[in-house]
């Protein structure tokens, strides 16, 4: 009985977060579309619906699949904070690492209510900081511009993602799954994905170079798929990682210990 009560309380909270997220998204859509509508009406510069849709189509072709992949891939990690994450953007370099880091600090079990809560707090704080930094930057636009235009600063900015991923990869190694749960040999499940990714990387580079897609995408010498469409690659690799890990777990090649078993 007590367990049911606790579960329903937890479910009530998660439901309310999804309601808040959905309402928040409806409001954000209203503002995103309302802004040009009000300005267009005021200045008599409104475009026709047909022109808007026609103009947006090239972007929709690229971004509808990638945003669908984002929702499918990031929701299991971010929980109900996916809504605020998508509204405020900068997912891969800011919201996902900050949520993951927060869950690691408080050692929460993946997919649990605790992980959802901690991730929501982290994403909210990250959103505040970005809004504050960009707003202060706008106010100080003139004095800050020379500093941000320094070659050292732009070089440092382009190193953020590689540096972050280096740290995250090391952070993700080891058997700690959060909440005191430990896995043994879990990275074995990632070997098929890593091998496939290596093949894809070589193939992608050759094909992109051969068809001059790399120069078209302004990424000379790089594979266009592996460096420009990572969202698609994550979705393609997820079933491979998932089922190979599941197979090894079922075959007892990966062992998972609960906290009270050690």
């Amino acid at each position: 009985m007590k367990k049911n009560d606790a579960y329903s309380e937890s479910e009530k909270y998660i439901d309310s977060m999804h309601r808040l997220g959905r309402a928040g998204m409806a409001g954000a859509i209203l503002i995103l579309l309302g802004m040009p509508t009000v300005i267009g009406l005021y200045f008599d510069s409104l475009s026709s619906l047909r022109q808007i849709i026609q103009s947006a189509l090239p972007l929709l072709f690229i971004f509808v699949p990638s945003t669908l992949f984002e929702v499918l891939t990031y929701t299991p990690v971010l929980g109900s904070s996916i809504y605020l994450t998508l509204i405020t953007g900068e997912v891969i370099n800011l919201k996902l690492p900050v949520a993951n880091n927060a869950m690691k600090i408080l050692n929460t079990e993946p997919g649990s209510e605790g992980a959802d809560i901690v991730s929501s707090i982290a994403v909210s704080i990250a959103s505040f900081v970005t809004i504050a930094v960009v707003s202060i930057g706008v106010l100080l636009a003139v004095p800050l511009q020379p500093f941000l235009a320094l070659p050292a600063v732009s070089a440092a900015a382009s190193n953020i993602l590689p540096a972050l991923f280096g740290a995250l990869v090391v952070n993700a190694m080891g058997g700690d799954l959060g909440g005191g749960i430990r896995a043994h040999g879990r990275l074995k499940g990632m070997i098929p994905s890593a091998a496939l990714l290596l093949l894809l990387f070589i193939f992608d580079r050759q094909i992109s170079g051969f068809l001059h897609l790399d120069t078209l995408a302004q990424q000379p010498g790089k594979g266009v798929i592996t460096s420009g469409f990572q969202g698609f690659v994550v979705i393609a690799m997820l079933p491979v990682s998932y089922f190979s890990t599941k197979w090894m777990y079922n075959a007892k090649r990966i062992r998972v210990d609960l906290p009270d078993e050690r």
């Binding site: 891939t73 299991p76 990690v77 891969i92 996902l96 993951n100 079990e109 993946p110 997919g111 993602l161 590689p162 991923f165 280096g166 995250l168 990869v169 993700a172 799954l177 959060g178 909440g179 749960i181 896995a183 879990r186 990275l187 499940g189 990632m190 994905s193 890593a194 990714l197 290596l198 990387f201 790089k222 594979g223 592996t226 460096s227 990572q230 690659v233 994550v234 690799m237 997820l238 990682s241 998932y242 890990t245 599941k246 777990y249 990966i254 998972v256 609960l258």
Partner: peptide, 22 residues
Amino acid sequence: RWNALRGSVYMATILLVFAAPI
């Protein structure tokens, strides 16, 4: 057990895909 392990697979795959080109 599987839920915790499965949760780590999502993050590991994201890291793998983004780290590979680097």
